[in-house]
């Protein structure tokens, strides 16, 4: 997958690039201003653009329309410190596919990129396969060895998050934020997530899956598929 990161903050841009290229095996370019971003989008074909709105030479919102007019199949995820509702709505109205507020988790960004990619390229009708597992992201259903597996909403969300971030350490906080959004702000303990993951692991083991979910003590979890 080829990603363009448009972000004027050098360190942040490099972190994202580093994470996406070295850890998620994607191809990633960085543009630190609007001009460079426009140039790059004309030269190369990207699958997804991660776009900061506040750029030194203009508003990122202008770029959205330009890109979407020519290439509606490019996913655009806005990343901004300005989480005013207006900006979010403007961005989404102009054709952006998702919105993330700074500061964000890299694993969350990764999950959003995948989700946007799937939605645009396959109209959401993707089947994720891993060994004996088959996940229909449209119906949000899972089959193990062709047998339907009943999961709660949270369990499904956790599993999907794991699958898009395989073999990566995921912190409890990032998992909580992924499944609960702003509600995770109220977290005092992550006990409840522990029980969700325990249940998920048990359900998968019962269906004959290997023990994918490893606990990284004190930090979170890792979905090991290799």
């Amino acid at each position: 997958m080829k990603i363009l990161v448009v972000e004027d903050e050098k360190e942040l841009a490099l972190s994202v690039k580093d994470y996406l290229t070295n850890i998620q095996d994607m191809a990633c370019d960085v543009a630190m201003n609007l001009e460079k971003a426009t140039e790059l989008t004309e030269l190369f074909s990207y699958d997804c653009i991660v776009l900061d709105l506040g750029l030194p030479d203009g508003n990122g919102l202008d770029l959205i329309q330009k890109i979407k007019e020519k290439r509606p199949d490019i996913g655009i995820i806005i990343v901004s410190a300005r989480d005013t509702i207006d900006n979010r709505i403007d961005g989404l109205n102009l054709g952006a596919d998702d919105y993330l507020t700074k500061p964000f988790n890299l694993s969350e960004l990764n999950a959003r990129i995948f989700s946007v990619y799937r939605r645009i390229r396959f109209e959401g009708k993707t089947i994720l396969r891993l060994g004996e597992m088959e996940i229909n992201t449209m119906e949000r259903s899972i089959k193990v060895n062709n047998e339907e597996l009943e999961l709660t909403k949270s369990e499904y969300n956790i599993l999907e998050y794991f699958l898009t971030n395989q073999n990566k350490v995921l912190t409890k906080a990032s998992i909580a934020e992924h499944i609960l959004g702003e509600y995770s702000d109220l977290y005092v303990s992550y006990d409840f997530m522990y029980s969700h993951i325990k249940n998920l692991r048990k359900k998968l083991l019962d269906k004959g899956c290997p023990d994918y979910i490893k606990t990284v003590y004190g930090i979170g979890y890792k979905f090991v598929s290799e």
């Binding site: 942040l12 972190s15 994470y19 700074k102 500061p103």
Partner: peptide, 20 residues
Amino acid sequence: SHELQTPLAIIKSKAELLMQ
């Protein structure tokens, strides 16, 4: 608080990279 968001994002992303 607005200006703090970006440095916070940098710290967070660097720590996450380190963790992997």
